[in-house]
Amino acid sequence: MRRLLFIILIVLLSACSSVETTQTEDVFSVGLLLSDSGLGDGSFNDSAFRGLEKTRDELGIIFDYREPVDQNFNGKLEELIKDDHDLVIGIGFTAAPAVNELADKYPKQQFALVDAVSDKKNVISITFKEEEGSYLIGLIAGLKTKTNVVGFIGGEDVPLIHNFEQGFKDGVKAVNKDATVLTEYAGTFGDDQIGAKIASKQIEKDADFIFPAAGFTGIGVLKEAQKEGIYAFGVDSDQFYIAEKAVVTSMLKNVDVALYDVVKKLINEEGLTGEQLELGVKDNGIDLTPIRLIQLSNKEQSIIDKAMDKGE
């Protein structure tokens, strides 16, 4: 009798296992390769991760991720590919070489690349008009500076971050031709202490608003700004809670929204293979968080609103 019960139990467990396997196979699966600064950057990576959490909660996908803190982009990306995900995403321009190489090696794998453009037929490229958001930040800095000195701090000295810098400078000069824009690059996205040191130098030169586009390095900038009693701007995600006495607003690069939309379209079999998506203010790819700590006059607010309407 016990043997019979044992056999029945095994059969039932096997049946349940088969059902679970079938269900898992039917669920859309995503693999996410973060940039080398990893989760907890309070910026780009965290935004991407939030996007996949939302797709999991609302669309029922499953996802896994890797953090290439050892710079092993190819190895980590290939791990995700071998896990047989429906979509594998590379975050940041540093992932582009690995995505392009492995897109050739695995032509049947669907990839997405964020913040860089690929010409591979199995790669969806997602870029943002970061200069539009930086322009808006520059307008605020130019309008509200009392010293006529503001600062920009970049992470690595690369074309993508130059877009942030140029947009910021253009915004400042559009409303304040007398303002000086201090600029320095940290050479890294992953060192908050370097960010703090550069911010300190700019503050010594009378900068009263600083805009970092520097990933985790920028966290040090925000904290130093708060420590020294000046204002700063967040980037990519809402960074107000990192330095609540300093962060006036944050320029949002809505990576989370973009990834949610792409996954939703792929689930609905809306072919996106090889497409290049460039998202700005009008596409909900770029935005600002609520302005805090300072007050804009009606005229100043009108300037910001008009720029947003134009998508500048």
Rank of each mutant, 00 (worst) to 15 (best):
I8Y: 08
L9E: 08
Q23N: 13
T24D: 11
V27F: 02
F28T: 12
L34I: 11
S37P: 00
N45W: 09
R50Q: 10
E53D: 09
I61Q: 04
Y65R: 04
Y65H: 05
P68E: 05
F73K: 03
D84P: 08
G90R: 09
F93T: 13
T94C: 00
V99T: 03
P107Y: 12
A112K: 03
K121I: 14
V123I: 03
I126D: 01
G138H: 06
A141D: 03
L143K: 03
V150Q: 08
V150W: 04
V150T: 06
I153H: 11
I153K: 13
G154H: 02
G155R: 03
E156A: 06
P159N: 12
I161P: 13
K169V: 12
N176R: 01
T180S: 09
G187D: 08
K197L: 03
I203M: 04
K205I: 12
D208P: 04
A213M: 07
A214N: 06
G218F: 03
Q226E: 15
E228N: 14
Y231N: 10
I242Q: 15
V248Q: 12
T249V: 10
I267T: 04
G271T: 10
G280I: 09
K282N: 14
D283P: 07
N284S: 10
L288V: 10
S297C: 12
K299T: 13
K306Y: 13
A307D: 11
